[in-house]
């Protein structure tokens, strides 16, 4: 069994430091509320949250931060970066991961006692996700399996209501280079400190199958909060306001109790 206590990888080969891109909105936020740290998934950067979710969270009084993953980094490095940024914030932080970023958050929860965590459209179990991707977008997915770029399609990420031009613009910003470990990784560790965890997603997500959403939510002792009609990119799709408002409502309730 892998040891939680003997962390030889960190002791003998520490992750080297790097400049991390963190986009933050902290003006006029409530110091009594915990900071939120958004972690984007494959091919996305902090920009994906800076569009809508960061301002929406700040408007409700939460200091909001989003981290861009280091280019070319593996899961261990991404987890390291999330924990580094979380620990650098003044208060115990809420981690919010989207897509493969939710997997990073799930791992980070094993290393840092988050105040709470939200897994949005989480890409948690690799094989079902790979199957779904091959069904929804075979020609975009196959090259990635042999080390090429993953070309995500419009119907995987967005609902049909998103204007064509906007969808094209967003797809142009996404540069997804998945690593093998996205499929082959070990199950995420047990979270330290027992934080409340919320799973949100869409039954119409063409990246994360509904069964996978249920499985993830069960693992963290709940049921997924669903937003029918939305694509995988909950924070960019036309109805982006609904999931973030629901997440902030949930946070408000959890933090009070």
């Amino acid at each position: 069994m892998k040891s939680d206590l003997l962390r030889f990888a960190d002791w003998t080969d520490p992750v080297p430091p790097a400049e991390r891109e963190v986009v933050s909105i902290t003006e006029e936020t409530d110091a009594a509320r915990p900071p939120l740290l958004f972690v984007p998934g494959l091919g996305h950067g902090a920009w994906a949250f800076a569009e809508h979710w960061l301002p929406a969270a700040a408007a409700r009084g939460f200091a909001a931060h989003a981290l861009t993953p280091r280019p070319g980094s593996d899961l261990r490095v991404q987890v390291h970066d999330v924990v580094q940024v979380a620990a650098s914030l003044p208060r115990q932080t809420v981690l919010i991961g989207h897509g493969a970023g939710a997997l990073v958050v799930a791992y980070a929860m094993g290393r840092y006692p988050a105040k709470a965590a939200v897994l949005a459209a989480p890409v948690m179990d690799g094989w079902p996700t790979l199957g779904a991707a091959l069904r929804a977008n075979p020609f975009g997915t196959l090259p990635a399996m042999v080390g090429g770029r993953l070309r995500l399609s419009r119907k995987q990420l967005f609902s049909p209501e998103l204007p064509e031009e906007r969808a094209r613009e967003l797809l142009g910003r996404i540069d997804a280079r998945p690593r093998r470990e996205l499929v082959t990784h070990d199950p995420a560790p047990r979270p330290v400190g027992g934080p409340p965890v919320l799973v949100v997603g869409s039954p119409d997500d063409r990246v994360v199958p509904r069964t996978s959403l249920d499985r993830t939510a069960t693992r963290y002792g709940g049921a997924p909060l669903l937003f029918p009609g939305m694509g995988h990119d909950l924070m960019l799709d036309v109805a982006w306001a609904e999931p973030i408002e629901a997440v902030l409502d949930w946070l408000g309730k959890e933090l009070k109790s």
Binding site: R7, H80, V83, Q84, A87, R111, P113
Partner: peptide, 14 residues
């Protein structure tokens, strides 16, 4: 540093 920090609250890696 890596052998001295709390396991759930790392010192800054810089």
């Amino acid at each position: 540093r890596p052998l001295t920090e709390f396991p759930d609250f790392p010192m800054p890696d810089s």
